[in-house]
Design a protein around this nucleic acid. Structure first.
Lengths: 220, 220
DNA sequence: CGAGTTCTTGACAGTGATCAAGCGACGTGG
DNA sequence: CCACGTCGCTTGATCACTGTCAAGAACTCG
């Protein structure tokens, strides 16, 4: 939640956060086709969102962590358009969207905040399109790791060590790669002394090298 | 603009549309880094939006036509994050975002409409991610053509004939392919009797075949 | 009409996919 | 606490899709 509220306003905002909901690892917060009622603010835990094609193929569209908002895909058609799966036990705040809209008519600061959150998602997806359309495997994985540690660091965690909450296959789906390619690229980074990898644990040894790989952005 | 307004409300909405602006082919409506002030409703013409990486590589993030809204990328950081280039002479309605927000606090129908437009963009980008991450060249181009004629048909144009406003290179950038691959895939569709192509002119002969190609969605 | 841009097509190459096998980690139940 | 089964990860060999390079054709616009 944004700053810029007085005590009275803050209370109203708090009231919108109707209740909390716990989701166990592997369970869904919502599924494609579900009626859209609420946005969700992640309090704890880690999610992936994914869309599925008719033949069951899956595209991970994002990974979300504490403090991030999910569910905005549902606004346009009053039903959700993707699945949100907890990658570890999680707790979310349920924010009924009707209440969010009502209150944001009263509080311009909240209104602007809602708009910014949606705009941020649009911009994020733009950069994923750049990643999927223009970058090669090493660049994609470097970008992915840098983005992840940056977000974790912003939450007070290490900027060099992380524990992946998703499988190689899920990383691959997000990055438009097969799991074998993800694994191989991890191994190559490890061989090059850029990172240490042991299963889900990753330590970034040479962040500059990663940034260099990411910035090169050579066409496929 | 949505339905559901009375005359008085409609007038207020009209007043938000401050003025119009003409953009010649090849010129930019806005550029990455420009201060964000307004959303733009396309009245006539055709745009592409694209982001550029540091080394100048370009990713087309979308093609927009009459009736669609662009500029929402700018809300989050108060400056635009992509370039909007007119692919033919165009005219847009300038909608100062502060006014849009002000009025949508008064008119819940407008507020909901704004939210839906942003959500629609998020959902659209999700399906582009599916396209870029999971589909092969033929599937991508089939999806592209079907999407384009569907949108043109919704505007009263033919559902089988269209004139592309963008180059092979721009199509390729959008679809994560090189221009030669786009050209070859057009030729293949033509050889298979699915479409007729002559430069920018495309006629869809067998829409079902295109849909079949699109639906197969075999992994790369 | 001519210069430049866009498009097509061919030959070849490379990145990442596919197929396959084995290893390692983790969790459950005996 | 350990055996075992499952799931996820790694690595190798091979292949195919699409990229790259190149040349020429077609079209557009001044």
């Amino acid at each position: 939640m944004p700053v810029g509220f007085n005590a009275d306003e803050m209370q109203k905002v708090d009231e919108v956060v109707e209740k909390r909901r716990r989701i166990k690892q592997g369970e869904r917060l919502f599924s494609s086709g579900d009626a859209f009622t609420s946005l969700y603010a992640i309090r704890t835990g880690f999610f992936k969102t994914c869309v599925a094609s008719e033949d069951g193929r899956e595209q991970v569209t994002g990974f979300q962590m504490a403090g991030e908002i999910i569910g905005m895909d549902g606004i346009v058609a009053d039903h959700h358009n993707c699945n949100a799966v907890a990658l570890e036990d999680a707790e979310v705040c349920v924010m009924p969207f009707a209440s969010v809209e009502e209150l944001s008519r009263e509080l311009p600061v909240l209104q602007r905040h809602v708009h910014k959150i949606m705009s941020r998602e649009i911009v994020r997806e733009n950069s994923v399109m750049m990643l999927l359309g223009n970058m090669r495997a090493e660049e994609r994985l470097a970008a992915f790791l840098l983005n992840l540690v940056q977000r974790l660091h912003a939450r007070g965690l290490s900027q060099s060590e992380l524990v992946l909450r998703m499988t190689r296959e899920e990383i691959g789906s997000y990055l438009g790669l097969k799991l074998e390619t993800v694994s191989r690229t991890f191994s190559k980074f490890s061989d090059d002394g850029i990172i240490e990898v042991k299963q889900r644990y990753v330590k970034i040894i040479d962040a500059d090298a990663l940034k260099k790989i990411f910035n090169s952005q050579i066409a496929y």
